[in-house]
Write a protein that binds this DNA or RNA. Structure first.
Lengths: 149, 149
DNA sequence: ACCCATCATTGGTGTTGACCTACTGAATTG
DNA sequence: CAATTCAGTAGGTCAACACCAATGATGGGT
């Protein structure tokens, strides 16, 4: 269990530093929960993208998640071996492979989502519900702005 | 320049995911600026800790920054080679080595701090001043809570 | 038909971050 | 004063991550 250091004022005065360390902590906590199921962060991201946007060529996944196409293959290989995703050639364009989430995949995704929410509860313990909502909304706007070129 | 992906609702609904991605982005942006000066994130953290808490044994730095003692040595080696820190045996306990920041060290730290603030401005562009303050305050509380055992 | 672009895949590379072990010299404890 | 604990150091491991080049199959354009 990673433990944040009681840090130094010069650093904690900088929002990027706080974002970086708190983000790293979140990453580690979620990563640990996923690791307990033999999965990694990208696995969850891919499952979520498939659940949200339906079956799609791997190219789209790569663009959507900003993940290298050759790494998409590797992630899907792992998920397919566990039965969480299926792959079919697109009959319209036989170069493409349509990846889709399976029922077991949806099940594990629900679990992972719950786990992640639990991590959130733990991490945001010092904040009340309204504050958590505020934080989330602000982060969402920052995220959205950083996402577009 | 890393670019965040336009992500998927199921993920952006989870605060830990937002913290993780935005944090990673902040980390990368700051890291790039440091790399332009041949430094890394830990270098800045160590300089800041020395500036904030004065000369101190490396053991304290390790605890303070949650950095492995053997890695503290390596970071200090690099900083010492650049003349940003000095090291002296503690006369009271000659096992200890007191690390301290030098004047050039303070200078570079000021620069790095300005660079980091600039990254903050860029990253938090969509937020107005009050919102940035709110975000910072919330993150600070989360950080402080996660820091203590 | 032919050529070129696209998609998936394979099998790598280099970097990084965190960690671990063994060793030295110094202090503390019994 | 012997044994143990502690600080710093040197050197190495290890997994994760992002990225790259080459290949084979397919599609689209002219």
């Amino acid at each position: 269990m990673a433990m944040l250091a009681p840090s130094t004022p010069r650093l904690t005065a900088l929002t990027p530093y706080l974002l970086s360390t708190v983000g790293k902590e979140a990453r580690t906590l979620v990563g640990d929960r996923l690791a307990a199921r033999g999965l990694r962060l990208w696995d969850m991201a891919v499952l979520a993208a498939l659940a949200d946007h339906g079956p799609q060529p791997q190219r789209d996944l790569a663009r959507r998640l900003d993940l290298h196409p050759s790494d998409v293959v590797k992630v899907l290989d792992g998920l397919a071996r566990l039965g969480y995703v299926g792959r079919e050639r697109d009959t319209a364009d036989r170069r493409r492979v349509l990846a889709s989430i399976s029922e077991p995949g949806r099940g594990i995704l629900r679990e992972l989502t719950a786990q992640t929410a639990a991590v959130g509860d733990h991490l945001l313990a010092p904040l009340d519900a309204a504050e958590r909502a505020t934080l989330h909304a602000l982060l969402l706007r920052v995220h959205a702005a950083a996402a577009r070129p």
